[in-house]
């Protein structure tokens, strides 16, 4: 026993000489904040954070981690409205791969504290009028570059950020539902009654990038999981898909990453090679979500 242990240790040393075993290679964990500040250097800007063992500590903004529960509403509000500089997020949905597993819907609803009938993401069964077949189509907010919902908001409660994401500030929303009426994609949903787990969520600080806690009498919709993107993580739905339907990435980099296989491909090539389209381009909404057509033989 003793011998074996020793043996292991010496081997370990040997292997470490190779210089890789301990090296960090996970690309995703890099902080996206790099764009606005040096990720390793303290910014001097401190926020209150709730640790896993329920202690309130002050952390420098530059050192925030994905699981941190930030307790500073004004910081969260400011960050949520500003967005991530230098990015322009896009999603590509490969309809040929969608098998209606609905893992994305489940992940979305649990992340955003939605009731079963509320959908930020809805997998629809669509009819192909020509071929008389049907296919599955996940429909999220299209994060339009000419967003009709944002145009009509009377109080700037819904707005578009510099990284292209359309968000909602449910601390400001007055619940007029003009945006719901204006969205041609029916992407928005409303908290008609007291939201799910509202008593449990009462003490949670509102983060508009996650839009949690939900509030009665306000609108909610897909946020491209802006809270995840900040830490270089893929949206909840994208990483939940078992079938490789979703690609997500930054248009400025021309790279999108598949949520299932993690394969990163060129956005422009993917769109071109697969005859990608957007939903109802004739409306001039300029969506940030692209669709690759469903497979021809299906149905």
């Amino acid at each position: 026993m003793n011998m074996a242990n020793k043996n292991d240790k010496s081997r370990r040393r040997f292997l470490q000489k190779l210089g890789i075993a301990g090296a960090s290679t996970v690309a995703g964990s890099a902080l996206l904040l790099q764009g606005c500040s040096d990720s390793n250097q303290a910014s001097g800007n401190k926020v209150k954070v709730l640790t896993a063992d329920n202690k309130l500590v002050e952390v420098d903004v530059a050192h925030l981690k994905p699981g941190d529960k930030i307790q500073d509403l004004s910081y969260l509000q400011k960050r949520g409205r500003e967005g991530i500089p230098g990015k322009k997020f896009v999603m590509v949905v490969d309809l040929a791969k969608c098998k209606n597993a609905r893992k994305c819907m489940k992940a979305c609803q649990s992340a955003h504290q939605l009731k079963p009938e509320m959908h930020h993401l809805n997998v629809l069964e669509m009819e192909d009028p020509v071929k008389k077949t049907s296919y599955w189509m996940p429909k999220t907010c299209q994060h339009c570059d000419n967003p009709p919902c944002v145009s009509v908001c009377p109080v700037d409660a819904t707005f578009k950020r510099q990284d292209g994401i359309v968000l909602i500030d449910n601390e400001r929303c007055i619940g007029c539902r003009f945006c719901v009426a204006a969205c041609p994609y029916s992407a928005r949903t409303f908290n008609w009654t007291e939201p799910k787990n509202s008593d449990k969520m009462a003490d949670v600080t509102y983060d508009m990038e996650l839009n949690v806690p939900q509030k009665k009498g306000t609108v909610t919709k897909c946020a491209f999981s802006a809270d995840q993107l900040r830490y270089g993580k893929l949206p909840y739905c994208v990483s939940a898909c078992p079938n490789g339907v979703y690609y997500f990435g930054d248009q400025n980099e021309d790279l999108v990453t598949n949520g299932t296989t993690k394969k990163t491909v060129r956005l422009s090539h993917l769109l071109e090679e697969n005859a990608a389209y957007t939903l109802m381009p004739e409306l001039g909404t300029k969506p940030s979500v692209y669709y690759l057509p469903p497979r021809e033989s299906e149905g």
Partner: peptide, 26 residues
């Protein structure tokens, strides 16, 4: 009566957005 958050009525005057037909309507 149609507002989800009538308690936030004043937001229309504080944060009013000239592009919104609701603001014109009010």
């Amino acid at each position: 009566t149609d507002m989800g958050r009538p308690d936030r009525l004043l937001n229309v005057f504080i944060h009013g957005r000239v592009q919104s037909p609701i603001v014109w309507d009010i």
